[in-house]
Amino acid sequence: MDNLEKWKLKVVAALKRLNKVAFSQRYLLYTNLGISIGLAMVGDQMEQGYECWSGHIDKWDRTRTIRMGISGFTVGIVCHYWYQYLDQFYPKRTLRAVVHKILLDQFICSPFYITVFFITMGVLEDKTWEEMKEEIREKAIILYTAEWTVWPAAQFVNFFLIPPRYRVVYDNIISLGYDVYMSNVKYRKTPNSSDTTTASK
């Protein structure tokens, strides 16, 4: 066995150990939060990159990306415990159980998730409660409508095929494109905004 083969075996063994520890019951919450924060920030950077390229903004706003990362922390907590709750009450992978999970996810968790996102961002932006409610009224329905085009099919795969410890990881991988869209909707200027420039695509 040459050195390259030995190196490959060492890398595979190290990745297996990392996977075993990171997705263990002891560290799963921290792993899920880290992934949620990281991909929320990546999604915002991708959106800002497009906005810079298209001329809607002049340069990358670091504070905006950090705020999106913090929102990834709060909604990551929601997802982590929500999936555990669903798996506790619907442990089987039957079609009936999966459909129940999807419906509960869309009608309960999705609105809550979107509300937590806007409240988190509103607190970070030092908005009043009235300003937060206005933004939720204007933008939450846009995100919720978009969720119906993506998540029922994605969650069917998640609940039917993905092992429970990987549910939030799968969610975040699928959600990367949605995170880009969330950033776009969140920072899209509305007609009521004093700033007339738009961040919409």
Score class of each variant (00 low, 15 high):
1 M>Y: 13
2 D>L: 05
3 N>T: 14
4 L>K: 10
8 K>Y: 14
8 K>W: 08
9 L>T: 13
10 K>N: 13
11 V>D: 00
14 A>N: 06
16 K>D: 09
16 K>F: 11
16 K>E: 09
16 K>H: 14
17 R>S: 10
17 R>N: 09
18 L>A: 14
19 N>V: 12
19 N>W: 06
20 K>S: 09
21 V>H: 03
21 V>C: 06
21 V>Q: 08
24 S>V: 05
25 Q>A: 14
26 R>N: 11
29 L>G: 00
31 T>P: 05
32 N>G: 08
35 I>N: 09
37 I>T: 08
38 G>F: 10
39 L>C: 05
39 L>A: 03
40 A>T: 08
41 M>N: 06
43 G>M: 05
43 G>I: 09
45 Q>W: 07
46 M>W: 10
49 G>H: 04
50 Y>T: 07
51 E>L: 13
51 E>S: 14
51 E>K: 07
52 C>W: 02
55 G>A: 03
57 I>R: 13
58 D>W: 10
58 D>I: 09
61 D>N: 14
62 R>F: 14
64 R>Q: 07
65 T>M: 12
65 T>P: 03
65 T>E: 12
66 I>S: 08
66 I>G: 12
66 I>A: 10
68 M>E: 04
70 I>W: 12
70 I>N: 07
74 T>V: 13
74 T>N: 03
76 G>N: 12
76 G>V: 11
79 C>N: 10
79 C>P: 08
82 W>V: 02
82 W>I: 00
83 Y>I: 04
83 Y>M: 01
85 Y>G: 04
85 Y>P: 05
87 D>M: 07
88 Q>Y: 15
89 F>G: 08
90 Y>E: 01
93 R>M: 09
94 T>S: 12
95 L>V: 07
96 R>I: 12
96 R>W: 15
99 V>H: 03
100 H>L: 05
102 I>L: 11
102 I>A: 01
103 L>I: 13
105 D>L: 05
111 P>H: 00
116 V>G: 00
117 F>W: 14
119 I>P: 00
121 M>G: 08
123 V>C: 11
125 E>T: 02
126 D>S: 11
127 K>M: 11
127 K>F: 08
128 T>Y: 01
133 K>P: 03
133 K>L: 09
134 E>L: 11
136 I>R: 00
137 R>P: 02
139 K>Y: 03
140 A>Y: 04
144 Y>V: 10
144 Y>S: 06
145 T>K: 08
145 T>A: 11
150 V>D: 05
151 W>H: 04
152 P>T: 02
154 A>Q: 06
154 A>G: 13
155 Q>E: 12
156 F>G: 06
157 V>L: 13
158 N>W: 05
158 N>D: 01
159 F>K: 04
159 F>N: 01
160 F>M: 13
164 P>A: 12
164 P>L: 07
165 R>K: 05
165 R>F: 06
169 V>Q: 04
169 V>T: 15
173 I>H: 01
175 S>G: 15
177 G>I: 01
183 S>Y: 04
187 Y>K: 02
189 K>G: 10
189 K>I: 01
190 T>R: 02
194 S>N: 10
196 T>Y: 12
197 T>S: 07
199 A>V: 09
199 A>N: 15
200 S>W: 14
